[in-house]
Structure formats: C-alpha cells, structure tokens
Computed example of a mutant assay.
Amino acid sequence: MVTKQYDKIFSRIVKSKQIHESVLFIQNRNGDFSYKNEYGGKSIDAPLLMASITKLFTTTCILILLEQGKLSLDDKVTRFFDNGKLNGLHLYKGQEYTAKLTIAHLLFQTSGLPDVSEEGKNNLRKRVLHEDMNITIDELIALTKKMKPLFAPNTMNRSHYADINFYILGQIIESVANSSLEGVFTSFIFEPLGLEKTYLVIDEDDFIPSIYFKNNALSLPKYIKSCRASGGAITTAREMMVFIKAFFGGDLFNKEIFRELEKYMKLQISFYPIQYGGGYMRIPLGGFTMFFIGKGELIGHSGSTGSFAFYYPEKDLFFVGDVNQSANPATAVRMAIRLAVSSK
C-alpha cells in the first residue's frame, strides 16, 4: 500500500510542466525495504548536482576534525585567516563582530551574515542565469562586506541561511587538514564509503549535469566549480543514499556528537517550515506543515536545484532524489514531506 502512495506522490510531482527529469530513491536503514522511481531518463545511477546537500559533506569534515581534536566549535574564525582578511565582514549597527565569529556560528547559520547567493538586487543566483562565472572566496567575502548583516552573532533566537558561512568553513577545513577540500572529502568520506561516482567539481571539464531553470537547461561549470564547500559536489541517488545513511548512522564520526548539533532555530521566512541545526536542516512534522499533518521530523538537507536527502527517524526511512528545477526548489521539500506523511 505504501508503495502505491509513493507512486501517486511522485507522479503528481512529475506532471508539472516545469519538471523535465526526476529521480526518487527510498530505503530503510538495513535496506530490506527499497523503492525507486525515475522520470525523464534520470536513473538512480545518473549524475546529479547535490547543490547545498554538499553542506553535509562539509559538516562531516568539521565533525571529524572536531573528533580528532584539531578544532573546536568555539574556535574564532579569524584564527584561520591571515592579514585581517575578514576585517569588516560583520559590521552590525556600527559595531564590529567579526572577531567574535566562531565555527559554531557558521555551522548553525547563526552568524547573522547576509547571503550574497540569494539576497540583493544583483545576487549571484540572478547573475548566473545570464552568464556562467567563476567567483573566488575573496570575492565572496568582499561582496558580503558590502551587505548589511541581519543580526549580531547568535542573537535574535534565530538563524539566517547564508552560503558564505559554508564557504568560510571550507577554507577552515583546508587550513586545519593542510589539504585541498577535494582531498579531505576523498579521505574522510568518498574512500571510506566506497563512493566511486561522487566528487567535488574542481575543473570546468569535470562532468556537470545541466540545471533547469523553468524550461531552460543551464550549463554552469564555472559557477559550480566555485561553489565548493557550499554546493559543488556531484553524486548519484544511489551513492547519496549510502552517504545519508552513514551521516545519520554514525559511520563517519561518533554519533554522540549529534547531541551538540541538535539545537534548532527557525530560518528566514522564505525557508518555512525548515529549521537549522548544526550543519543540517530539520523539518518538524508534528503540526500543520505545508498543509500536511504528520509525526516526527525530517532531518537532512535540500538543495537550490531541487535535490534532497532526508532521514525520517519516525519510520527509519531515508528519502533521496532530485527534481532538477532551480526555479522552484521547494518542490523537492514538499515531496519529501508528503512521502514522510504517507509512510504509515
């Protein structure tokens, strides 16, 4: 019966004129229940852009380095940057907070920094719709300095989703591990899990799937290569399933560490009903959520291109997939919610 519900939900999603391809893969922890559905030639072994699900890779690396004793969540961010590069990054109501920013503020999205990817009249998302571009971490920091922070770090009892937080975390990982980010991803995640089709884009010649915006298939090799720790990884639904099980199953780091991450705050209203914890999203299902009533929660991450990877502890189910539509990435979140609610 539940597979019929999954069929119905998937069919409803792909009937949209904006959905040109989609893939859905569902399993329980031990894999004795498995369901997949594919549309538009997108199989569970086809490459897909993880987009912001890449942040789970970045979070994994931070947690492993934390477990190794090489950093602390309370470490000041400026410790990892030379020559005052970050000076003026967080100037709020005339007061400089940059020196007070910690790794925890970045990981929990409580830094108060603005999001140059999505905010402002000429944000990066709008610009790349017209022209593919490279952008460096120094350029991202400079753009962020031109915008106003939303609040002082760890105040207002809320979080504000901003890609710059994870761009900076990527730089910190490279500094602490004394390795390139792709090297750290490989040694900490890809090799231990046997992920052979998952990689961080490091060259414009690396294969990068097209990204749909409405009916337009965009090729953005320069921009995706620039996204790195915030959104630059490629995988398949099958390998994303392996990773999300490992992430929440304690196969990559001590599962007890999650107790430090289970502090959730509401994101800006455009992300409703999503909350943010230590490097991952939480969607509460215990009340009215997107017009559905369910039990428990979804934890994981979604991406701005319609990718998603969530764990539903209430039924011990994992949902991964992609709808590949950057004009309406909330479609993926709504599908994940419907799947969870229908999992009787």
Rank of each mutant, 00 (worst) to 15 (best):
T3L: 12
K4G: 13
K4L: 12
Q5I: 01
D7M: 13
K8C: 09
S11Q: 15
S11W: 03
S11D: 15
I13R: 09
I13G: 02
V14K: 03
E21L: 04
L24Y: 06
Q27N: 12
N28Q: 01
R29T: 12
S34H: 07
Y39R: 02
G40W: 12
G41A: 00
S43T: 15
I44Y: 02
A46R: 03
A46T: 15
A51H: 04
S52P: 00
T54I: 07
T54K: 04
T58Y: 04
T59I: 05
T59Y: 05
L63P: 00
E67F: 02
E67Q: 14
L71F: 02
L71G: 01
L71Y: 01
L71S: 01
F80E: 04
D82F: 06
N83I: 08
G84Q: 10
A104E: 15
L106W: 07
L107K: 12
Q109L: 11
T110W: 02
T110R: 14
S111C: 13
L113W: 03
E118W: 10
L124A: 05
R127I: 14
H130D: 09
M133T: 09
I135N: 10
T136C: 03
I137G: 01
L140M: 09
K145I: 02
K146R: 10
P149I: 08
L150K: 15
A152P: 08
P153V: 11
M156T: 02
R158D: 05
R158Q: 12
S159V: 15
H160A: 13
F166W: 05
G170W: 02
G170E: 06
Q171I: 02
I173P: 00
S179I: 00
S179C: 06
L181A: 07
G183H: 03
V184F: 05
S187P: 03
F190G: 03
E191H: 09
P192W: 07
L193T: 01
G194A: 06
I202Q: 14
D203H: 13
D205G: 11
D206E: 11
F207P: 06
I208F: 08
N215F: 00
C227Q: 15
C227M: 12
C227V: 08
R228G: 09
S230C: 08
G231L: 05
G232E: 10
G232I: 06
M240T: 15
M240E: 15
F247P: 00
G249C: 10
G250R: 11
D251R: 14
L252Y: 00
N254F: 06
K255A: 12
I257L: 15
R259T: 14
E260L: 11
L261W: 09
E262H: 05
Q268S: 07
S270M: 05
Y272W: 13
Y276M: 10
G278S: 11
G278I: 12
G278E: 13
Y280T: 10
R282C: 06
I283N: 02
I283C: 02
T289N: 08
F291V: 04
L298A: 12
S302T: 06
F308A: 01
Y311F: 15
Y312L: 13
Y312V: 10
L317W: 00
F319S: 05
V323L: 14
V323T: 14
A327Q: 05
N328L: 14
N328C: 10
A336S: 14
V341I: 09
S342W: 01
S342I: 01
S343Y: 02
S343F: 08
